[in-house]
């Protein structure tokens, strides 16, 4: 009996293999190969261009540790990732709850569309439209001055809050979507059962709803935290001079300074740090879930 089941699943795996091949072939070509090249670059003294001599070195990695600037920038980027993730939870989770548990039918579809809308616009366009809103004499400034009886001066452009606003705007849909999926899977009768046992809404949230939607929160947080730590577009355009982060420095190495080996090394250090953080966080999050 047990043997039969085992052979059954093995032949099932064999017949399912063709379904896996396209994805893994694509991943190999599109991610593994370029990434391997980057690993290779990160150990070189120079880019292997014609007429340039190069050799293997660990200097690129050593640079990170010898110059405190990089560590400071990495810390700033991690803090940025944490803050943006927290804001996305604060803004996205309640929205996901209302979408999953309050709205029904057509109105839910309409509201849902509004949440996904940012996905449909170009990222650069989104960021520049934020620039128009946030600058002095911009849309936010003019609107507030038109409504308020006294004069205020709002210039958020080229500031840390502007970077946060831009990033939260870009990434909050991920949190809404992942949380919506787990919240929607929670049976309404669980909430009713809790209430019939005398639990207040806050107690239900704390003891049943948040624990049951934890997988969505974790997935959303990972989807947001990782790219935000390495982000460079929003910090550069909305942050200006205050927008120097780890991601922008990496971008500089590739685009401006043309020091690909250092850029590659900094990227892999970031990757390692993020993986360590996720590995350390996973048992804690698993226990919470």
């Amino acid at each position: 009996m047990a043997g039969q089941v085992a052979t059954g699943s093995r032949s099932g795996l064999r017949s399912a293999l063709p379904l896996l091949v396209p994805a893994y072939l694509w991943l190999t070509v599109a991610i593994f190969l370029p990434l391997s090249a980057m690993v290779f670059f990160s150990f070189m003294t120079e880019l292997p261009l014609p007429g340039k001599a190069w050799s293997f070195t660990l200097d690129n990695y050593a640079t990170f540790f010898s110059q405190p600037l990089y560590l400071t920038l990495l810390a700033a980027s991690l803090r940025l990732g944490l803050e943006v993730t927290l804001w996305c939870i604060v803004i996205g989770y309640p929205a996901a709850y209302v979408l999953a548990k309050v709205f029904r039918g057509r109105s839910r579809e309409a509201i849902f569309l509004l949440v996904i809308l940012p996905f449909w616009s170009n990222g650069l366009v989104r960021i520049f439209s934020w620039a128009m809103v946030l600058r002095e004499g911009g849309i936010l400034d003019s609107a507030l001055n038109a409504v308020l009886p006294f004069n205020i001066n709002i210039d958020l452009m080229y500031s840390y809050p502007a970077v946060i606003i831009g990033l939260v705007h870009s990434y909050v849909p991920y949190m809404v979507l992942t949380c919506y999926l787990t919240l929607q899977a929670i049976d309404d009768s669980l909430i009713e059962a809790g209430r019939s046992l005398g639990a207040s809404r806050l107690q239900m949230l704390k003891r049943v709803i948040i624990p049951l939607s934890m997988p969505g929160l974790v997935a959303g947080a990972a989807l947001i935290f990782v790219p935000v730590v390495g982000s460079f577009m929003e910090p550069r355009i909305l942050g200006g001079r205050t927008g120097t982060f780890y991601g922008t420095v990496i971008e500089d190495q590739f685009v401006a300074v043309f020091n690909w080996p250092l850029g590659a090394a900094l990227s892999f250090i970031l990757l390692a740090v993020v993986l360590v953080i996720l590995a350390l966080a996973s048992p804690v999050l698993k226990r919470a879930a």
């Binding site: 049976d187 009768s189 009713e192 059962a193 209430r195 019939s196 046992l197 049951l212 879930a289």
Partner: peptide, 20 residues
């Protein structure tokens, strides 16, 4: 009076046990 203040006990068709 809302349900949480009525001091009733209820058993649901699908049991509605907290899976966590």
């Amino acid at each position: 009076v809302p349900v949480e203040k009525r001091r009733i006990g209820m058993v649901f068709q699908n049991y509605a046990l907290f899976p966590n």
